Simulated assay, not measured.
Amino acid sequence: MPTHRPTLARPFVAAAMVAASTLFAMAQQPPSPSRVRGTIVSVDGDVLSVKSRSGEDVKLHMTGDMRMVGIIKISLSDIKLGSFVGTTTVPGPDGRHNAVEVHVFPEDMRGTGEGSRPYDLRPNSTMTNATVAETVAGNDGQTLMIKYKDGEKKVVVAPDTPVVTYVPADKTELKPGAKIIAFVKQLLDGSFETNRISVGRDGLTPPM
């Protein structure tokens, strides 16, 4: 006698295959960026054309309530005990946390984003916003012990590590050639909207 296979299972198998292929396609799509780092190419009303650091052309629509800050360079000696800082770190071969950059928050920004989390500046980088509890000078720069509400971290800051701080800024500084970091949200049509921009002063590239 011929063997009859159940046919009811076929729709479920097909549905499972469609679902699996959809999940696979979604996994292959790169995540939407939360930041755009680059140089302003042109300004047209509330739309910025930006060449990203990776070479992509991006258009950013500025919201009506957009906030701006300027970024200026300061020295390593400007980091004091009690300073509230943010620092991007990468693990060194010796297990130490090496600073890629340090930004010192002004007092009215104390507590901003306190804690430690993965960051998108470099592979395996981490962003930590915390208070400087101890600083030790050494031949290779300074070692900072920074503490936040859920822990602490010892960070090595080399002499050539960029150190910056925030200053007030306005939209007049958004001009061709300016280096920016824009915090963005991708809209349904694929364009990007920004409500917060950090702009480097005097040609400075914001290092964070």
Rank of each mutant, 00 (worst) to 15 (best):
R10W: 14
T143L: 09
G92I: 08
G138I: 11
E152A: 09
V199Y: 01
G82E: 13
V36D: 03
V41D: 04
S49T: 14
V132D: 03
M127P: 06
V167E: 14
D150H: 11
M109Q: 03
A169N: 02
F105N: 03
G111I: 11
L204Q: 06
L174G: 08
H103G: 05
G64Y: 01
A137N: 10
G141S: 06
F105D: 06
G55L: 06
G55V: 08
Y148C: 09
H61W: 02
V157K: 00
R122I: 12
Y166M: 06
L187M: 12
N98A: 06
P91F: 09
H103Y: 03
G141A: 05
A14P: 07
D108H: 12
R37S: 00
V18K: 13
R96G: 06
S77G: 12
G177N: 11
T131C: 05
V163C: 07
V167R: 02
I71D: 00
E193K: 03
A169F: 02
P11Y: 07
V132F: 04
P168T: 04
L48V: 04
G38H: 04
K59A: 14
K73N: 09
V100H: 00
T194C: 04
P159K: 01
L76A: 15
G111T: 05
A130K: 00
A169T: 02
V157N: 03
N139I: 05
T3H: 10
L204E: 07
Y119L: 13
